[in-house]
Design a protein around this nucleic acid. Structure first.
Lengths: 138, 138
DNA sequence: CATGAAAATGCGAATGATTTGCAAAATGTC
DNA sequence: GACATTTTGCAAATCATTCGCATTTTCATG
């Protein structure tokens, strides 16, 4: 097993993946992001650290990191994916319909129920997507 | 209140919406569909009843029906939306990763938990999306 | 620290799903 | 049936994302 560092790309180096300026910049953006940025946002932010980063590289890097399990892709509204680092515990999302803000939450009980339902239907869950869309209680 | 018929478009007539051959054909397709067809599938099937239906009209009609609440749009995999008539009770989806089959299910307990979680976070849920992706238990 | 094979990059063109502008056709009201 | 209005088909336009390819970079080696 490869030893784990705080840098997903460094972890991948042993697998023939090269550490480039662009990848480090993109990763930096993801680490700093408090929101769930779109590819375009990531490009803009990454260019602040390394102006040479191109759109294509952002997409390629995100795809690579997603496949490696280091990045999660979310399709909240249907107009462009939004990404986040997969370095914390699993969680689902609550999207504020008025502000677009994304609140994260986790419910072991819901996950448990999901597994039970799937089992009843004869399935094992590989992954799931749970998104709540709502408005602040007045 | 307008009286409700079994035909979403007929319901809309009073709102200035016109009942056209194309719309009836698309609606017919949705009523007969046992699966969750994509726009392209709907076009193909609608043309069997009315060859004049165009792609643009399929999209426009689906958008109209969605806005009216008669049709639900699903974005299961990210490569094209899949539609269904919103005439039955609410349900969520379990997608078979091997066959692409979509199984519908409903869990009042999960919905209850979702509402509780949202409430704790200070939100009222307007709608939600729960999709389970899995494989048949071996 | 120079070398070279392999991996990555930027660019711009290609994709695929969906949307839109517009002139022509169809609907439903009077 | 006549007309104002809505809807349509067509083709061109978008939008997010992917790809081809020549050029640049990375990194194991000498």
């Amino acid at each position: 097993m490869t030893q784990s560092t705080d840098d997903p790309i460094t972890d991948l180096r042993s697998e023939g993946v090269r550490v480039t300026r662009q990848r480090l910049a993109i990763l930096h953006v993801l680490r700093e992001a408090a929101d769930h940025p779109r590819a375009e946002d990531i490009l803009t932010r990454a260019r602040q650290q390394d102006p040479s980063v191109s759109q294509a590289t952002v997409y390629r890097t995100l795809a690579m990191l997603e496949k490696a399990g280091s990045v999660l892709r979310n399709e909240f509204d249907g107009s462009g994916a939004r990404f986040e680092l997969a370095d914390r515990h699993h969680h689902d999302h609550l999207i504020d319909l008025d502000t677009g803000a994304v609140v994260e939450f986790h419910s072991p009980r819901i996950e448990q129920l999901q597994a039970e339902i799937a089992a009843e239907l004869g399935y094992d869950i590989a992954w799931h997507r749970l998104e709540l869309y709502g408005r602040k209680t007045t």
